[in-house]
Design a protein around this nucleic acid. Structure first.
Lengths: 220, 220
DNA sequence: AAGATCCGGAACTCCACAGTATCGTATAAG
DNA sequence: CTTATACGATACTGTGGAGTTCCGGATCTT
């Protein structure tokens, strides 16, 4: 089956544990390992390539354990994708260097690059499902590209408040340039999204688009 | 099976018909219908969701006919994707209105929008395979995004020759903005790529990035 | 220690799809 | 008309994965 077929998605909600009377408490303590195993397999093989046995093996769990916790492969995947949002760039501990370029460059860190590539692989694995599972499309967007776009929006709005860039820049659209071009580069071109590439995007596209041209910027 | 498993890809080459001695000639006259049926199914269900029976039914052909012509599902898909390149915006019959903006706007036509969305659906269906089948990734890029990017490059270089835009604009990167942001919008956001969206991309991102700012452009 | 519950493992059923084989028919060549 | 070929349809086989069931052992509670 290629469908997700979650009758009533039941996305997110956990049917309130009634009363763990006796024996070991019903802790579901293996959930994180299982979900992260699912994400790994998802990134490596895609939704259709992923089998429940792969996930179970990776998490060193039994297949039955997965089915005790999730009704189907589809629900497991949705949960895994949703539980990935927690990410790194949560709050306003974004860089604040005083210039837009400084902030954008400061966002380029080895960890975020690595993390971004893995997330894109996951997105690729889900791609073909997105048209038939809108809730999955939403979850994937919220977990993978929105966080980064949101960070970019914050940085650009700050620059706007400082008067560094024009007030009628289309921030919502501009904040998507880096994510979507990185996606194209990784997924289709199969080239690495390294520091040099990101810097050239910032200096060659983003800053010019926002009115901060740099005749002499030598992309370094 | 989720793999493509083409032993020796044999991509493209048709083993030179030796000698159709007798009977009906070995014309392979149904190939186009079959390939286009394959593309339709691919766009609707993705690689793993697509079955040979679906393609055969869609093309009103027998399953055996497909296997007489292609050794496996994978080869059929590769052929179908490759045979899609022939597209529309081949030669230099691109618009030439005298301004970059005029040219870019003139490229927006109902047909190209529709065609572009279908191609993106196909790309989505192939996405999860791309990491394991480099030749497929190349074919998909050559057939789907490269043609459009190439057209954009031509228009921008013309503008450069006219002196309309700065000579050190990063044309190669800028030409990818529209394709990749359109892909994001269709595949992940699941919103339509209509004329308004494309115009706002041109006026809000591309032209500003290239130094043609427009304080008064009201995106119409 | 006794009792209850959860876990990992493994065997099992069921079904969908890739790929093969067969057959009757349509069509073109001779 | 005869003959060879390609075609569409359909029945068949084999495999792999989703989901289920069962069991022995581990772990917590009392």
């Amino acid at each position: 089956m290629t469908q997700l077929d979650l009758g009533q998605p039941d996305l997110g909600e956990r049917t309130a544990e009634p009363s763990p009377k006796l024996g070991r408490k019903r802790d579901h303590t293996r959930d994180p390992e299982i979900l992260s195993a699912a994400l790994e397999v998802l990134a490596e093989t895609g939704y259709d390539g992923m089998t429940i046995d792969m996930v179970a093996a990776r998490a060193k769990a039994g297949k039955a354990t997965l089915y005790r916790r999730w009704a189907s492969k589809g629900e497991l995947v949705i949960d895994a994708v949703a539980c990935m949002k927690k990410g790194d760039l949560d709050d306003a501990k974004l860089p604040d260097t005083g210039t837009l370029r400084g902030d954008l460059i400061a966002m380029i860190r080895p960890h975020s690059i690595e993390d971004g590539e893995k997330k894109l692989q996951i997105m690729a694995g889900l791609m073909s499902m997105l048209s038939r599972a809108p809730e999955l499309a939403e979850a994937a967007n919220a977990a993978i590209v929105e966080p980064r776009a949101a960070a970019n929006r914050v940085l650009m709005r700050r620059a706007m408040d400082r008067g560094e860039i024009s007030a009628d820049s289309d921030v919502d659209t501009l904040s998507l340039i880096t994510p979507s071009m990185a996606a194209y580069r990784v997924l289709i071109l199969r080239k690495p999204v390294d520091r040099d590439f990101l810097v050239s995007l910032i200096d060659g596209v983003l800053l010019p688009a926002v009115g901060l041209a740099h005749p002499g910027t030598d992309h370094r």
